[in-house]
Structure formats: structure tokens, C-alpha cells
């Protein structure tokens, strides 16, 4: 059982047919009679696998096809072609047995009823997922403790702040202890403390139930905190699938050298040693190709009055940015 991947995706394609419309009343009047359609390929043949218990970051700029892929995997969309198996099920058949083990959290939408306390929505979910009373109480207690929900559950949802609502939302999605968890921007619009809380919580759920997690986020901190592995897509195509650490080696084959020099003249001279990333007075940051880093550093130390020098990998945001720019070029 452990050998079987939880999520298996092969050549998944989704094409939307969208109605094209130009601006202006005249154009809209014309479209009364003749509608123009355009085929938009949101996902163009994506393949990957996730093993049980893996937490994987799903990265790509807006419109890359992340949400479309997640929607196909959760059974909300029929793919145009290709195959997918999640826990052995074909998602878009939407079998109850599958949906019972799945949760899909959308950061910007709410499944909780607006006018009543979250607790009442939980009780409905209990009935829907047929969660036995004992298990329901246990899980709820855990969630209340982990997310500090005590005071929130009895207030009507409309009175909660965005962060509080997101916590209640997450709890609602996890009450049935899903084996597979799709998180679509779970930290959107939530403050830093709350982001941390949510991350810890996802990690905890993953550890406790060996659940497989696929996560999209615009906050790289979410990804670095939770995921060892990332899948990167762009324009509907798979760009990268592998270790987060190896991502920077592949797409950003350089290191950053931070220098603090004694005077401005030597700072100017330092800039001749490599591509300048930034400069602030006598503090200069250079970008050097990975393989040349050690030799250049040696020369810098020998030839210039260096006060301080550090070598580091570029920030993950920059690597990602590099990835997408590289594709555009």
C-alpha cells in the first residue's frame, strides 16, 4: 500500500472555450449576433506523482494552470484529456468514497455558512461525512487546541476576522481527517503570525495522519517551511519537479557574495569582479557563477581591503522569478 502513489497525474490537459469580447458598446452589440470563441489551453499535458505523506509545493505565476489542475484533481473539472488517479480513484467521477478522504481548501472562498457559528457548520459536515461522534469530538478537540479556536466557534462567522475565519475554514476541512489535502493559497490575506500558525498546523496534520498535501501559495515562506519538493508549472506546462534545494542550482546557477569594504574606491573596484546585484555605500552584493565562486572570492580577499564577506544562495523568490523569466526569454 505504501508503495502506491497517492496522486498520479499523466498528460493532463484542460482546454477552456471562452467567449471573446472586445471593449465598447458597438462590439458588444455585434457579439449579440456573432460570438467569437477562443480556445484557451490552461493545462497542456502535465504529469507527476505524489507519494503518501508527501508535502509538495505547487508553484507558478498567476494563470499558470495551478488552480485548474487542482480542480481536476478534486473532481470539480473534467479534463479535456489525460489521466489522473488520486487514492486510486478517478477524481471527476466524484465517487463518495473518494470525496470522503479529500479536502480542498480555497483561500479566498468560504464553505462556512455566514450567519451561524462555525460550530453549526461543523455539525452539518459531521453528518455529511458521517463522522462517528467519538472521532468527531477527538478531532475537534485537537483542532481547537492547535488552532486556538475555543472562543471563535460560537460566534457567527460573519463576525470573525479574515484570519480567524481562515482558521475555522481549515478546521472545517480537516474534521474528516482527509488523506489528501489540496491547499490553494491558504494564507492569502492573513497576517504573518497567523501564516506561521497555519503552516505549523498543516505540518502537524501531515505528520499525524500521514496525509498527502499539495500546496499553492504566493508566499514562498509557506513553501520553504513545509515542502521539501516543489512542482513548478508555467503556461500550463511542467517546468520542474524535484527538490526545493536543487531548484536554485538548476535555474539560478549562481551564488551571492556580500562584501563590506573599507572605502568607496575599493567598492567601485569590487564591481569589476562580477555582476552587481545591489550596492549600498561600501556594501556591495555580487552575483557569481557557482563554479567560479571560490576562485573569485579568493581573489577578492587577496586584492581588496575586505571588512566582511559572506557567500549565500539567492533568495527563493529570486530563483522563482528567474525561472519564469528564463521561460519567457
Amino acid at each position: 500500500m505504501a508503495e502506491q502513489p497517492h496522486v498520479l497525474v499523466r498528460d493532463l490537459v484542460k482546454t477552456y472555450r471562452v467567449h471573446e469580447r472586445e471593449a465598447g458598446a458597438g462590439a458588444s452589440f455585434r457579439s449579440l449576433f456573432k460570438r467569437k470563441y477562443k480556445e484557451v489551453e490552461a493545462v497542456k499535458g502535465v504529469s507527476f506523482q505524489l507519494m503518501p505523506g508527501e508535502v509538495v509545493g505547487f508553484l507558478g505565476p498567476n494563470g499558470a494552470g495551478k488552480t485548474t489542475t487542482l480542480k481536476m484533481l478534486s473532481g470539480l473539472l473534467y479534463p479535456t484529456s489525460g489521466e489522473a488517479r488520486v487514492l486510486g480513484f478517478e477524481p471527476w467521477k466524484r465517487e463518495a468514497a473518494y470525496l470522503r478522504q479529500l479536502s480542498y481548501v480555497l483561500g479566498n472562498r468560504s464553505q462556512l455558512a455566514w450567519d451561524i457559528p462555525a460550530m453549526d457548520s461543523y455539525l452539518v459536515n459531521q453528518a455529511i461525512y458521517e463522522i462517528p461522534e467519538k472521532q468527531f469530538r477527538e478531532t475537534l478537540d485537537e483542532l481547537v487546541a492547535l488552532l486556538d479556536l475555543e472562543k471563535l466557534l460560537k460566534k457567527p462567522v460573519r463576525g470573525l476576522s479574515l484570519g480567524e475565519r481562515m482558521k475555522c475554514e481549515l478546521a472545517a476541512s480537516l474534521l474528516h481527517r482527509p488523506q489528501v489535502l489540496f491547499l490553494d493559497e491558504p494564507t492569502l490575506g492573513v497576517d504573518v503570525t497567523m501564516q506561521n500558525r497555519i503552516r505549523q498546523f498543516v505540518a502537524e496534520h501531515n505528520r499525524r495522519y500521514n496525509a498527502t498535501v499539495l500546496l499553492t501559495s504566493h508566499y514562498m515562506a509557506d513553501v520553504t517551511a513545509l515542502c521539501k519538493r516543489v512542482i513548478v508549472i508555467h503556461h500550463g506546462k511542467l517546468l520542474y519537479d524535484g527538490d526545493l534545494a536543487a531548484l536554485s542550482e538548476k535555474f539560478a546557477p549562481f551564488k551571492q557574495v556580500r562584501l563590506d569594504l573599507q572605502d568607496m574606491a575599493s567598492a567601485e573596484r569590487a564591481k569589476e569582479f562580477g555582476e552587481v546585484h545591489s550596492q549600498e555605500g561600501t556594501k556591495v552584493t555580487l552575483r557569481l557563477p557557482r563554479e567560479k565562486t571560490s576562485s573569485v572570492v579568493a581573489r577578492l580577499l587577496a586584492e581588496l581591503p575586505v571588512i566582511d564577506l559572506t557567500v549565500e544562495d539567492p533568495a527563493i523568490e529570486e530563483v522563482i522569478d528567474q525561472v519564469f523569466q528564463g521561460v519567457e526569454a
Binding site: S74, G75, A97, R109, S110, I128, Y129
Partner: peptide
């Protein structure tokens, strides 16, 4: 219109019923 029908479809219940 708002896309929240997703949540209905994600539940292990016949969607029309829910």
C-alpha cells in the same frame, strides 16, 4: 456566480440533494 458551488461538489453527497 461566486464559485462556491465547489464546496457542494466536494462533499461526498449527491450534489443535487445537497
Amino acid at each position: 456566480r461566486e464559485g462556491t458551488l465547489d464546496f457542494v461538489l466536494l462533499k461526498p453527497v449527491v450534489p443535487q440533494f445537497m
